[in-house]
């Protein structure tokens, strides 16, 4: 009986330690999320040329965590900061989509400067105007300036995949918002 009591106390102590750690982690996550959200808001506002005040919608995508709606006279637009990662490097870009899912603007915010793949040339413009019914280019060869994309690069395909997913997601969000 006494051994059981001791065991119970030990288990409770262990649970308390883990509970405390969970609380600590949740607090840290909330703080980080809030700070990251504020920074992304600034980047999107800079790209869109107007302030972003609406609450972001959380999404679960490996490349993006939240989408900011930008209500406008000609229908809603959506802004997101996307993270692109391939064997060729890492990049972070702010993107602006129309409610139909079409990519209206995109700008590289910063990149893993050691690997310049995302940074070379203005190859993001190959994706502009795509989305909605007009699919993103699948091969670098069909892009506007293939040389700037350093051939059929993995980063190009990765970016096309991310933008396609985002476009689909924003179309759904746009429909939900009416």
């Amino acid at each position: 009986m006494a051994a059981r009591k001791v065991s119970l106390v030990e288990n409770l102590a262990a649970a308390a330690i883990m509970g405390f750690l969970s609380l600590l982690l949740v607090t840290a996550i909330l703080l980080t999320e809030s700070a990251a959200s504020s920074r992304e808001r600034v980047l999107i506002a800079d790209l869109a040329g107007r302030s972003v005040t609406a609450k972001p919608s959380a999404i679960d995508d490996p490349a993006c965590s939240r989408v900011f709606p930008l209500p406008g006279k000609n229908g809603d637009e959506f802004g997101a900061v996307i993270y692109m990662r391939s064997r060729s490097g890492t990049g972070r870009a702010a993107a602006l989509f129309a409610g139909s899912g079409q990519l209206e603007a995109i700008r590289l915010v910063d990149g893993d400067s050691a690997r310049l793949d995302f940074d070379q040339g203005d190859w993001f413009s190959s994706f502009l105007g795509k989305g909605a019914d007009d699919a993103y280019p699948r091969q670098a060869a069909s892009a506007r300036d293939p040389a700037a994309v350093s051939g059929a690069s993995e980063s190009f395909a990765e970016t096309a995949g991310i933008l396609e997913r985002m476009s689909l997601l924003i179309r759904t969000l746009g429909k939900e918002r009416g």
Partner: peptide, 20 residues
């Protein structure tokens, strides 16, 4: 991660909960 933590908005806790 996908059935419990993502709906709660706590996906970043995945490794910790997995370990426990």
């Amino acid at each position: 991660r996908n059935l419990v933590l993502v709906p709660l908005g706590l996906a970043s806790l995945d490794l910790f909960i997995f370990v426990l």
